[in-house]
Every structure is written in C-alpha cells, then in structure tokens.
Amino acid sequence: MRPARTAANLIAALLALVAPLTGATAYEVEEERRFGTPEADRELHILSTTDTEHFQPLIEAFLATRPNVALIYTVASSTETYKAVAEEAAPVDLVISSAMDLQMKLANDGLALPHRSDATLSLPDWARWRDHLFAFAQEPAVTLLSRRVLDQLPAPQTRQELIALLRDNPALFRGRIGTYDPRSSGTGYLFATQDARQSQAYWRLVQVMGGLQPRIYCCSGQMIADLKAGDLMMAYNVTGSYAAAQLDPDREGLVIALQDYTNVLLRSVLIPPTARDPDLGRAFIDYLLSPAGRALQAERTGLPPIDGAALGQAPHLHPIALGPGLLVYLDQIKRQNFLREWTDAMIQP
C-alpha cells in the first residue's frame, strides 16, 4: 500500500509538472492519477474536490468488474473545478464537489446531463435536484475542542454555550481559535452563509471569535492537524468526516455536533455536457448510490453515505438541501456584502 501510494504520488507530481506544459488543462490541478489496466479501451475521467485516497476504494471496486475501463481521477479545488466546467468546458465525465452552491449553479445553468435510474430515484428529495445533481455523502460541519480545554471545562452543546465558553476564557482561546476562510474556501463560504441563514447566534459567535484573534484556514485538514499538535484549542466548522477519523477523543480532542443545529454538507456529483463517455459516468453514479457502493463508502472511505433515516433520528442535523436557494449566496453583490460583513466582524484590529 505505502510504496504504491508513494509511486502514485510521484506519478501525479510528474503529471502535474507536465500538464501546464502541454496546456491540456488550464484549471489548476492538485493531483491526478490513473487507475486500471493500460489496455483498457474506455476511459472515465472524474474531476473532484475530494482527495484521491478517500475515493480509491470505490474506484477500485468499480473497476474490478470492468476490466476494459480505466479511470482518471483529478483533484482540484472547488472553484477551479467549477471554472473547469463553466468556463473551460473541460472534457471530464463526472464532476464531484462539496461546494454545493457551485454544483447547483452548474446544474441550474444547464451544465449537467440528466440521469434517471432506480439508484438516483432512491435518494431523498433534499439529496437530489431534478435528474441532474446527486448527493452521495453527508458530512456535518462540526466543532472540534482540544482535550486541554475539556480537561478544565465542560463541553458546550449549543452556540450559546460556545459563545459563553469563549467569552469567559479569553486567555485560553486567544490566538488559538481556527475556522474556515470563506473568502478563499468554497466550503468555508457555504458553511458561513448557511450558518448566517440558520441563526442570529452565528454573527455573535463571529464577533466573539473576532475578538480572540482567530486563525483563518483554507482547509479542514490543516485545522485538524494544528488541533492535534496543540496549536488550536477550538476549531469551528470543520468537515466532520475527516475529523472523526483523525482525532483521538481521549488524548487529542472531541468532535462536537452542536445541538441547536448542525449544518450537513452534501458532496454531490453531476455529468457535465462536455463528458466524452456520459454513460460510463452514469454507471459510476449508479454504483456510488447502489447498496454495495454505499456500504463500501461507509466502511472504507470515511465519507458517510446519504442516509435519510440517520438524519431523521438526529433532528439537530440540517442537511443543506440542493435547490435554487443555494444560488442566492453566489450573487456577486450578496457575496461581497457577506464577506465584507464577515471580515469586519472576524478580522478586528
């Protein structure tokens, strides 16, 4: 496993070096890997914001029954992924992204091919938009608290309690709070805007965090790493699936899903109109949503599959529904205003 991955990373690095020279891709690729045998005569190209290692088990299982198929998995940021489809008409067969609003905009602007099957119809309403956009993973936006905090203080259950905790212990938290930067991260912007929509408490929390010289992050991974390292006491709005897997609750810290509400992010997939082999893309979607695919996803990838029943039992978990409401925060004026307000509150001199 280890050497294979190293080799793969090496190849990906080489490819990343070569790609800009050939000019094949104008959007910024973070990683690219090819799966499958060299003699494969069909190729499925996936452009994704999800790290390759999360998807590898699913890809290998999908290819296991299709020896004639090769799969190219390209990782890019959510904005680059959106740009690739919306502006550059990249010839990829599937687009996978956690930036729900951007995915929604692609589908709404007619940049998704329809697909209807038993698998897609089995999705709950909020996890599917028409026959164009399909969610396959639900990930709560959680709060992480370091064990060093929990050793002294009780874990907060709501935002009110979290605000009180921060306000009452400024010395402990000053300079040691982390959160997503909505200006550079699509996921961070989505979490922040959905928070602002859900509750007035969010702005007060931002106010309080802003007073404690917060650290702004681009990605969940870095926040988790810094928390583990002890540089952060608290991290707000972290993608839960990564955190739960990496954090030792007894020694490092706790993953908390706040009880007043916890937004649940949906990772979604669509077939762009520029797909070279859309039917292969449809087959991959069907596999992803099939019972076997879901079971493997739950077990091996750390990405919780769509499960309406589980959400029904936890009423504080609010899935961000796929729908035109998501388009509101993509409006240029709306975005500028929101970010200005957020920056004013969060970055205090």
Partner: peptide, 24 residues
C-alpha cells in the same frame, strides 16, 4: 444594496424543481 433574501429563490425551489435565473 440588493441583498437577495434566501427565501426569494428557496420559494421557487419549494414549488418545483425548475431552473432559476435572475437579473437586477
């Protein structure tokens, strides 16, 4: 300052799964 309310589009999505466009 036009701050599009979330409900403005959400109400369109609640009634049907039609695509939405706007211009101000």
């Amino acid at each position: 300052l036009v701050d599009i309310p979330y409900a403005a589009f959400a109400m369109l999505g609640a009634v049907s799964e039609d695509r939405v466009f706007y211009r101000i």
